[in-house]
């Protein structure tokens, strides 16, 4: 009886230890994966110009969103991400809401950002897609 208890305890302890080391390793690799230079530029541009309305996660819940009617698009939505091609997203950024028949509250960025910057933003937008639960 006692022996089985000790063995069982030992096993539990061992399991606990191995789990811990695994977690530490995972955390280390997660912190170590850097974004590519393009994605980083895209993220910077997004966070500087777009995040105010579209929110950090892209859910359309930025600081200035409450004040806009219609509300900014939630493009972290997987269905939306699937529906739109890169070219369509870039076009909406370039020509703005009014340019693509939507709300003029989304301004056109084609005169502010270069094509390369817009493409980088699109690249970054793709990373904002919500993962299905």
């Amino acid at each position: 009886m006692n022996r089985t208890l000790i063995v069982a305890l030992g096993l539990v302890l061992l399991a606990g230890c191995s789990k811990k080391t695994k977690e530490v390793k995972l955390a280390a690799t997660a912190g170590a994966a850097p974004l590519s230079y393009e994605l980083r530029l895209g993220k910077d541009t997004y966070q500087h110009y777009c995040m105010l309305c579209h929110g950090e996660s892209g859910a359309g819940d930025g600081f200035n969103a409450f004040n806009l009617d219609p509300h900014p698009r939630d493009y972290s939505d997987p269905a939306f991400q699937k529906k739109k091609t890169d070219a369509e997203l870039a076009d909406a950024i370039r020509r703005g809401g009014a340019g693509v028949g939507l709300s003029p509250l989304m301004p056109p960025w084609g005169h502010t950002l270069t094509d390369a910057q817009i493409n980088q933003v699109v690249l970054y937008l793709r990373t904002l897609e919500r993962k299905p639960e």
Partner: peptide, 15 residues
């Protein structure tokens, strides 16, 4: 038409 009110207030309304 250009949606300036998204960010600016004139009178009672605007961002």
């Amino acid at each position: 038409a250009n949606g300036c009110r998204a960010c600016h207030i004139i009178g009672p309304s605007g961002g």
